[in-house]
Design a protein around this nucleic acid. Structure first.
Lengths: 341, 341
DNA sequence: TCCGATGATGTAAACCTTTACATAGATCGT
DNA sequence: ACGATCTATGTAAAGGTTTACATCATCGGA
């Protein structure tokens, strides 16, 4: 009585075989109406739920999807997760999460979940394939990258159209009258870097801004690195009138750095970000940025994963959602003072 | 070859029985050194990992912990999750997450994970027991509430000392010279509400502020409700000089409302929050608040859960971590103007 | 030299499902 | 009215482990 009911308990009460019970649950059309009724009653009486372990064992496939991120605490992560979770649950799947903190050793621990059949599929957050050596990749279950393309593997990807997003940011700055616009990037190894940079260049090309007026700085995507990149810049003699940052964290760093030097945003300098992290709207000034439709990305990525799971056809290799420009208060027309330099 | 190696493959290569392989893995001291060596080699050759489904089925217990929250997107959630995950992984467990969005129907779907043996334990975030009718509670696996005490069940709880936290906030306000301090609460049904309110009252009692000078407002814990509570207040004729809010969201709402009415914080009014959400430091002015040591709470809660899992003794029913007062810029001495009223 | 104890290993059952195959009854066409 | 077809159900195997129990060799003690 204390241990949960099994299919056999149900079968006994419904006076049918366990096979019939199983069929009544999973392929009801193969079972006579009258018996289905009996089975359902028996299920109600016993409170039976199928033992997922046994089912997965028999089927050779679990109903869990593993989601691996470098850092669960990443402000971008949670809303993606919402989308992922909703879609997974709609398919009767659960979500298993892990974060590696960029430690390959920890990546391997999660790989075990995969190898031991505990997860039927894999979602990779933020462009990482965290399992060290490439050889590991061979046995990977169906996988989808999300938020940022996965650098080192032909893994399908769902994210935002980085080029278009960057282009929207740059076009806004141009429209406000800026010509000299710095691009503050993170690691060059990130595909998102390349694409946003591409949007930056395309926008400036279209506006006829010569290469010589472009400034490219590098960081690693953190707030601190944004501030540092700014410090470096101030040792040069030419300053831009605006900063287009590869992500919001960097933009926040730039804004802090500018503030510390006594400048006013947006009066002295304009700043744009990318991602629209929750903080962006609370800063002062609030940050003009490109929004990642996070929940939609998550949902879409999980849907793609399920396609892969059933078809096993590679399907589309990239799904790009349209980013929105969120105009807030960190951009205005360039100040005369700095244009002159 | 393509399908993963089983214990039988290992046994064949090591020229022992599967029982010996199993023992070599889980109870190595029961196996001769020489054979253990052979088995380990065979494992290395085959790349064997135990099939978790089969193991859990046999053991009648999985290596997953279910974590249920009303909303995964909650800014308080992610760092708790980090603590939970780290501790779980250290024990070889994985984390399954779900969020109910306060829909009991969805709570039931997660209950199925529990009943079907997919999760050995349960972590409940933010004071909810999301499974509708109490009868469900009977069969719950070992469970621990986190961040906020669980209202409707004798479930052990790990969180912050709300009374002490509230007391720290109120003491700061008193020290700054405030006497008339409003408490802006969320739902009265929350235990955290009661406790923080208790700290509020205790602090005012100690300072000799009469009951008649206390103002208590109610919301539901959201930003919007903070703003609304403020609007209600302004229809009265007596105003406080400070607002002590039950959480940061509410405090943000109050600050927005005050800002919209043209008041300056902290010159005209002081505001304190509770939780220290990530935004708190980015607001302007930045929010003085009580920090929840989130990662530590998560870690501690998971550790308690594992104790429950092995001992099955109820152990301590509440673990309260010490909260820190985070002083930022939303508090100053009361303005003359409002004190006079 | 033989008995009992000890230690290492093997055999087989059990955990709970799903499903291929077998069976049996019903239905249909001629 | 009879074989063929179809529908509903049952039987039993398989999926990969863990572990109680059985077996067997070894060793110490008398």
């Amino acid at each position: 009585m204390s241990s949960p009911a099994t299919i056999e308990d149900v079968a006994r009460i419904a006076q049918v075989s366990i096979a019939t019970v199983s069929r009544a649950i999973h392929t009801p059309e193969k079972v006579a109406n009258s018996t289905r009724l009996k089975v359902n009653q028996a299920i109600a009486i016993t409170g039976y739920t199928t033992n997922a372990m046994a089912r997965s064992l028999r089927l050779g496939r679990s109903n869990m999807i593993l989601v691996v991120a470098p850092d669960i605490g990443d402000p971008n992560f949670s809303n993606i997760l919402v989308g992922l979770e909703n879609e997974a649950r709609a398919h009767g799947y659960g979500i298993l999460i892990g974060h590696t903190q960029n430690d390959p050793q920890r990546g391997l621990e999660y790989l075990k979940f995969l190898n031991s059949n505990q997860a039927a599929g894999l979602i990779l957050f933020t462009g990482i394939l965290p399992f060290g050596h490439q050889s590991m990749t061979a046995r990977l279950p169906p996988s989808v990258g999300v938020f940022e393309p996965v650098y080192n593997g032909g893994i399908p990807y769902v994210g935002v159209d980085d080029i278009e997003g960057a282009r929207k940011a740059i076009d806004l700055l141009i429209a406000e009258g800026h010509r000299k616009i710095a691009f503050v990037g993170d690691s060059r190894t990130r595909l998102a870097y390349a694409r946003r940079r591409q949007g930056y260049d395309a926008g400036l090309d279209a506006a006829g801004v010569p290469e010589s007026d472009r400034i490219v700085l590098e960081g690693d995507g953190t707030i601190e690195s944004g501030r540092l990149a700014l410090e470096q810049l101030f040792m040069r003699d030419t300053l831009p009138s605006a900063f287009m940052c590869v992500n919001d964290q960097t933009a926040i760093g730039v804004m802090i750095g500018l503030g510390a030097r006594g400048y006013d945003i947006p009066k002295d300098f304009s700043v744009t970000g990318f991602d629209d992290v929750p903080q962006a709207s609370f800063m002062s000034p609030s940050l003009t940025t490109i929004r990642q439709p996070r929940t939609a990305i998550g949902k879409s990525a999980m849907a793609l994963l399920f396609e892969l799971l059933s078809d096993s056809e590679p399907a589309e290799t990239e799904i790009l959602l349209r980013p929105d420009l969120i105009v807030r208060n960190s951009v205005s027309a360039p100040s005369r003072r700095f244009q002159k330099r």
